[in-house]
Design a protein around this nucleic acid. Structure first.
Lengths: 340, 340
DNA sequence: CATGTGTGGGACGTTTTGTGTCCCTTTGGT
DNA sequence: ACCAAAGGGACACAAAACGTCCCACACATG
């Protein structure tokens, strides 16, 4: 059945929405019958007219009856609703999860793919695919895209496909050297993405461990300044979210940093910032490029991360910044987040 | 899965239609790629513009790509189509049957309920329900409805439910005395239907075995003439289809009639007419009311019959008259019809 | 090289559908 | 008798869908 639903989601994207709407109407009618149009419209947060159209429709389908005293479910409607109750749990599983997460995290948009990244490797590909598809919808209008490193972002690069608007896009790394393996470095991924969709790109190589003077003079370099300006003006930011300690180790951070992270109970990491459970920034990698405060509301920020064990990291990061507009995650992480 | 589909059919009636349309587009694109918009529109019997809207949609869903040389399926489209092929067989099972029957019998509309009347008694109820629902859509505009007898029609009467327009309807028996058991007689059913939906009705009692003189004088009776005129002007005709010999026996026809039916290979029967396999009328019950030639194209004629063993009867009847606009039958009969 | 046929995409006016917003009559309870 | 709440009719307006062009471009063919 799941496969049928997946196909339908592709072939009729607003099917679920409509089903859910009508399902809700039937439920409310059952609960409140006999109920009038206007009062029902209030409860369902629909305008009178739209609800009326729906009611007319349901009436034509013999699912409800309308009398002068109000609306009732018909016998057939009752039977259908009974079946529907059972099936909707399954049908809306993901949808309901998305909705709850949206409310809980106060995020505009949540996309959940079913499965668990940690257990099934192909789920990460699904995550990446979802991210790629989501990006696609934006890059007609948002043409400078900042990207971070990480294996998830590398997967996103693999999933990108070019289209008519993609040529106009420029990819830039969000921040200089935050210490990933080369194939998962932001610069590498930026290059790969640009090649995939025939777009332009700019890289930002900032050597680690520079003395302050060299660093300062480097920053005065015009080419450098230009890239950084471009990065700061990016209209879309795509990034992964990591577990704080895992990231710190992978980056071979100083022991002092590590201990501080542990002491301050850092759990999440995103583009070089480490967040405690409550969302406070407890550490940041010092480098150029996007800073947390650059994530203004005008930017579209897409965060991608999946797997049950990343739930806390996701939460800490979301608490730490309200800039994220889209969260793309998997079912396992979503359920874990909600269960907390 | 079937239950989900059933629900969806109720909740979004044109879902299947849309799915099928898009599925077809994908199939054709795959078969003809790279293919242009106009040529595709021809093959699919869609106008250029509607196809274009669909293509835009599918393009946005990343299911197909459009280049200057024509359209191709995308990788994702290919994958989806593969899954779709498998699932559509099941999804459209009934729909495809309906479509094939429509083409094969040259009928405007075919409605098939799944199952087999002969084996599962509740399938007849489903047939009746489908018929009742179908009638409902008409009686806003078609207000005089002629009904025949038979157990199927009796079941239809049970399934009728009243609505706002039903009061304006008048039920009449299609023909006088064609010899059914009283509870399955047209007059009885007409009365029952009218009661069910708070409509008016007229009956037509024509005693059997009248001498010609009495019959002639009876026909001059004004009340009689009025009813008959009403019947002939009926805007909708609902009738069952029977197996010729079964019907003849049930009606206790003369042995001479029986032998003639056998000789002439009568197989189907509908409102008193007997049809041979090729559709010729080989016998008719002599009585007043609707005659075969009264079934003009303006009338909406709905034929209801199900069960594998009625397939031949249905076919013979349909061949005999092209007046039928809607056939309501069950899966078993439909499959049998197509396999012939 | 010209030409003809196919491609996608833009554009525009028309039609249809959906919607927000009224108002009116009916109904049923107080 | 009255009032609140019901459904339904009506209308104007916006948005979407649609039919029907025309255009630029690519490619094969003469």
């Amino acid at each position: 059945m799941q496969i049928l639903l997946d196909i339908q989601k592709k072939l009729l994207p607003d099917l679920l929405e409509t089903m859910q709407k009508r399902y809700n109407i039937l439920r409310y009618v059952k609960a409140m019958e006999p109920v009038g149009r206007r009062s029902l419209a209030n409860h369902l947060q629909l305008t009178e007219r739209t609800l009326r159209s729906e009611v007319d429709f349901l009436k034509n389908q013999n699912l409800l009856e309308v009398h002068s005293s109000g609306m009732n479910l018909s016998q057939e409607g009752r039977e259908l609703l009974e079946q529907l109750e059972g099936i909707m749990r399954e049908v809306m599983g993901i949808n309901i999860l998305e909705q709850r997460l949206r409310e809980m995290l106060q995020i505009d948009e949540v996309i959940i793919v079913s499965g668990n990244c940690d257990e099934s490797p192909w789920v990460k590909k699904e995550l990446a695919k979802a991210c790629a598809a989501r990006m696609k919808h934006e890059w007609k209008n948002r043409r400078t895209i900042a990207i971070t490193g990480g294996s998830t972002m590398a997967a996103v690069a693999d999933s990108l496909v070019s289209d008519e608007y993609s040529k106009g896009v420029t990819f830039v790394p969000a921040r200089g050297g935050v210490g990933e393996m080369s194939q998962n470095q932001a610069n590498t991924i930026v290059e790969k993405m640009a090649q995939k969709v025939h777009a332009s790109y700019k890289v930002l190589y900032v050597p680690d461990q520079l003395s302050d003077e060299v660093y300062a003079s480097l920053m005065k370099e015009p080419s450098m300044k230009e890239v950084i300006a471009r990065i700061k003006s990016a209209e879309m930011v795509i990034h992964g979210i990591g577990e704080a300690l895992v990231m710190a180790e992978r980056r071979k951070s100083e022991p002092s940093v590590l201990t501080r992270l542990v002491e301050q109970k850092a759990v999440g990491e995103a583009f070089g910032y480490y967040f405690s459970e409550s969302g406070e920034v407890v550490h940041k990698v010092l480098t150029v490029g996007l800073q947390l405060e650059d994530l203004t509301p005008e930017k579209k920020v897409i965060a991608v991360a999946g797997g049950k064990k990343k739930a806390k990291a996701i939460q800490s990061y979301i608490r730490g910044t309200h800039a994220t507009t889209v969260l793309i995650t998997d079912e396992a992480a979503a359920r874990e987040l909600i269960s907390d």
